[in-house]
Amino acid sequence: MSDPYKVLNIPPTATDDEVKHAYRQLARKYHPDNYQDNPLADLAQEKMKEINEAYEQIQRQRKIGSAAASSSDRGENGYRYGYGGSAHRAASGSPLMQRVRMAIAEGDISQAERLLNEAEEHDAEWNFLMAVVSSRRGWMDDAKRYLETACRMDPTNEEYRAAMNRFAAGGFHPEGYRGVSTMSYDSECLRYCATLAICSCCSGGRFCILPC
């Protein structure tokens, strides 16, 4: 296995707290919530596995190395991120929707789409699965609309609500960056955009790309 410290991007001299901090940062970065219905979810899952293994290995090495072993081991305090089983396996109302879920689980999105187009009844589950398929294709606006419809048609459904919450979640941002969104971006920084744009004082203006 590769150097666990390299995986966590820290020097071998890092303290236990630094190790834990680095691990948590990376685990937040590759958290399954950030890759919901994302075609790259398998790659994020691999990364997560690497990080988990590296952290475990460091913990093990350090435990052996020191008599006073730390009790804040990942396994002991239950701090473990991971990818669960394949999503969207919940029980379906109809055999057709069951087949759609299977197609999605196998990653065959065009097949799932074909099956959905065959459906005559557009109930809450149909809308939910359309949202999943749209999201897999990167059609994020359609995905949101289908998901909203699904939640409206069946407001008590846990699966749809959880998906909606994940959809609305802020996503990962590294240290030093606030969790911003397009709507919440503050006007203080906007002024910077304006300065950036009107800047034409150096380099004859034409090739100037940076605020001066």
């Binding site: 950030n34 890759y35 990167g138 994020m140 606006d141 996503g171 969104s181 397009t182």
Partner: peptide, 11 residues
Amino acid sequence: TLDASIRRMAG
């Protein structure tokens, strides 16, 4: 929806 695309890019 712009945010959704930025998050996909960031991911």
